[in-house]
Design a protein around this nucleic acid. Structure first.
Length: 565
RNA sequence: GCGGACAUAGUCUAGCGGUCAGGACUGAAGCUUCCCAAGCUUCGAACCCGGGUUCGAAUCCCGGUGUCCGCACCA
């Protein structure tokens, strides 16, 4: 580590392409900014990171996993807020070509310009004669929504969008998942998939993509109970935090942070630890990892509290995971727009007898007057209690029109009811991971280069695309046959290998070092006589002799990851 | 989206109007009992795309695309 050199993003991307981790997409047609393809090693690395994540969330924490669609109808994203909030309005000067955010120009002309439609902003700017600082006239207000819009079905079809986050597929499946998880809180659901954002100006290689991979977890919790059983096991763990109060980096235990209110609740604190555990297991350097709390002003429209895991890479501190307490925002929005019942039933320990003043319909009067609508009015009245009565009248809606009813149509009666529980809209804790950014951070943090330019990727064995390089010292005298048999034995155990018998042994080690392969096994003349092989460790270049028969077990032991519980 | 710089094999680069576009590393085949990018032989591989100027364009001009740096943007 002492001879470590800082890697630049250019060198990193060059290695990524050379070794088959990441390729710029559609290169033979000139490429498209913000789109990259994963090559053979990158695909394996990405899969391994996702599998490690699944081990933690699905196996260890018991979340279920789904796989939702990438394309969805407009209503979903109306409800989620993306249609309205995910857009910017801009104007361009006809003279100098400079473009401005329209709502910024309207500051001072309106109490809340951000809330205006394109047409209203247009009128506001026109009426007030707003001009470019250069004196030029502005062209019409343009709307730019960061979602990819499409049509579902032939002809005009229905307006659809490519999802800007995977989370919505989980929220829209809430009812199914709630039942699947036996109607109990808390329960969690994860999803690994792609999201799409038509970024104005993608930069920084794989950090800002137009199509990207996410690993999102949605944990549905009781709004009144954000404690977490296993929190006690992690409260003494130390992490580096940057709270939004003074924005200074502090190292403290999660227990201290939760107790002092810096972290909003136990569950949030617990998942900050889970995230730390996951990222460092995947190969993120703990020294280049911190958790930063969102400033009140930068918090998304839905978030109650939000912590980002940030890594230090050549582009600076970069957000790779967001852990947000989204409150009841998402489910409430979908309840409002879809009218579905996205709640959880909290059963009381014992049924409670509740007395209340109910509104009881008088069918003798309602039926003759309202005919077919009477049934609906009955439902409305039964959902009310005495507090809905004002000046002896209650208001119901008939065919969309409000109608006041007097006591000829209802009466207030005191009723005794047995109540078994209450329905609540669960709150959502969301750890949302940018898989591409995590992968890239792992590569940068794994990258080491010696003075002579020798590059080693110290990827963690768990995520390394190739686990073992298998070589005959030379491809003759029967060594190749022995090496091939060993290679096959490893692959039969599901261990990814790379067999190589070309060039010098040093060159083959070097190739594996640059691909991040943790171990190499070499068959030599001694193997033919004594049956042992050389096992060479990537990070130390140390070699030891073990029996060829033990290689599979030796590797498997080192790849096994224990669950924390 | 705006301004600036840049664009040559997989990678790094030389060439800046005129022979088969040169090198290094990588890659492939082979030789060498070969454990850390050794050596030798042979081979493969490139002028971002589209127009224009010119007898002739990798080279000059225009447009596009991409990359990098600023600005803006980043729910």
């Amino acid at each position: 580590m002492n001879q470590m050199k800082e890697v630049s993003s250019g060198e990193m991307l060059s290695l990524c392409k050379r070794r088959g981790f990441i390729y710029p997409a559609y290169e033979i047609y000139g490429g498209i900014a913000g789109l990259y393809d994963y090559g053979p090693l990158g695909t394996a690395l990405k899969g391994n990171i996702a599998d490690l994540w699944r081990r933690i969330y699905a196996l260890q924490e018991g979340f279920v996993e789904i796989d939702g669609d990438s394309v969805g109808p407009e209503a979903v994203f109306k409800a989620s807020g993306h249609v309205d909030n995910f857009a910017d309005l801009s104007v361009t000067c006809k003279e100098c070509g400079e473009s401005f955010r329209a709502d910024h120009l309207a500051k001072g002309l309106h109490p809340n310009p951000d809330s205006l439609s394109a047409e209203d902003l247009q009128r506001l700017l026109r009426d007030n004669g707003v001009k470019c600082p250069c004196g030029g006239e502005f062209a019409d207000v343009e709307e730019f929504n960061l979602m990819f819009k499409t049509r579902i079905g032939p002809g005009g079809g229905r307006t659809g969008y490519l999802r800007p986050e995977t989370a919505q597929s989980i929220f829209v499946n809430y009812v199914n998942l709630y039942r699947h998880c036996r109607e109990r809180l808390p329960f969690g659901c994860i999803q690994v998939g792609r999201g799409y954002r038509n970024e104005i100006s993608p930069r920084q290689g794989v950090i800002r993509l137009r199509e990207f991979n996410m690993m999102e977890a949605e944990l549905f919790v009781d709004p009144e109970d954000k404690t977490w059983p296993r929190y006690m096991d992690v409260r003494d763990r130390k992490v580096r935090l940057v709270p939004n109060t003074d924005e200074k980096e502090v190292e403290m235990t999660l227990g201290e942070a939760v107790d002092s209110g810096i972290i909003g609740n136990e569950t949030l604190g617990y998942f900050i630890w889970v995230t730390y555990d996951f990222l460092t297991s995947a190969g993120i350097d703990p020294q280049r990892l911190r958790f930063r709390q969102h400033l009140k002003t930068e918090m998304a429209h839905y978030a109650a509290d939000c912590w980002d895991a940030e890594t230090l890479i050549s582009f600076g501190w970069t957000e790779i995971v967001g852990i947000a307490d989204r409150g009841c925002w998402d489910l409430s929005q979908h309840i409002k727009h879809s009218k579905a019942d996205l709640t959880a039933f909290k059963r009381f320990d014992e049924p409670r007898d509740v007395e209340r003043d109910a509104v009881k319909p008088k069918f003798g009067a309602l039926g003759p007057r309202f005919k077919g609508a009477a049934g609906d009015i009955k439902k409305q009245l039964e959902s009310m209690d005495a507090s809905a009565v004002h000046d002896g009248l209650v208001t119901v809606t008939v065919n969309g029109e409000p109608v006041d009813l007097d006591t000829a149509y209802y009466e207030v009666v005191r009723v005794k009811e047995k109540v078994n529980g209450v329905r609540v809209v669960p709150h959502v804790i969301e750890p949302s991971h940018g898989l591409d950014r995590i992968l890239y951070s792992c590569l940068e943090h794994a990258y080491t280069e010696k003075e002579d330019g020798y590059v080693t990727l110290r990827l963690k064995p768990a995520v390394a695309p190739i686990k073992v390089g298998v070589f005959p010292l030379m491809a003759k005298d029967g060594m190749a046959e022995v090496a091939k048999a060993l290679d096959m034995a490893l692959r039969e155990e599901g261990i990814v290998t790379y067999y190589d018998d070309s060039g010098s042994i040093g060159r083959r080690y070097a190739r594996m070092d640059e691909a991040g392969t943790p171990w190499c096994v070499t068959v030599d003349y001694d193997t033919l006589e004594k049956g042992d092989v050389t096992v060479r460790e990537r990070d130390t270049a140390e070699q030891k002799r073990i029996s060829a028969d033990d290689v599979v077990t030796w590797v498997r032991d080192r790849l096994r990851r224990k669950l924390s519980y």
